[in-house]
Amino acid sequence: MDFLLDSLRASLYLIVTRDPAFCHAVWTSLYVSFWSIIFAALLGIPAGLAVGLTEFPLKRTVITGLNSLMAVPTVLIGLLVYGFISRQGPFGGFGLLFTPSAIIVGDALLAAPIVANLALSSVRGANAAILPTAMTLGGDRLQSVLTLVSEIRFGMVAAVIAGFGRVVSEVGVAMMLGGNILGYTRTMTTAIALETSKGEFALGIALGIVLMAVALAVNVIFQFLQRK
């Protein structure tokens, strides 16, 4: 019990004192998650819509593939991106490895399949009635699709929230591509991993509590936006 009480106390202490290293880790987490989910949405939503709204051979296979991509382990994505952006890799010249941008790239690739799959399911759930109706009301193909998208916008927001949850909580990509550099690429999750490795379990759990609080706050904000 002491252990949990210590953790609670440590988390309150971190928040109240606004410890600079801690605040930086929180901000870095939000920053990389925000941008990676933007990019993931830009990739995933059009992909999900395209697959959901068109008929083509092997469609089932593509959907199965898209579903399987959600299971790719974070460290594998980290490793693949690492190979591309290390100085030895094809994009080495940009010097991206061990920067926040590297984490954004990895996290965007991690979240894109989730966003695509959820976008796809909401399209499939709604498709049957809306599209033909919009077409008969005289809209052209593009307008009809836009009508559909606005009808299923809750599904889209849900897709983005799920993607955000995935990237804000993952540690593999952030550790491999960011390098856990203090005051630069250290995120909440890599900080938890580090404190655990140092045997500072209470501090690790304290960070975990804060991570959960941040996730809660983000979801509340999203929900608020949805209601509008």
Partner: peptide
């Protein structure tokens, strides 16, 4: 300046030097 510390084992540290990272 800022010194960015990547704390890994000696083997990997040298590897990162070899690749110029």
């Amino acid at each position: 300046c800022k010194v960015d510390v990547i704390a890994v084992g000696t083997g990997k540290s040298l590897k990162l030097g070899e690749t110029g990272d």
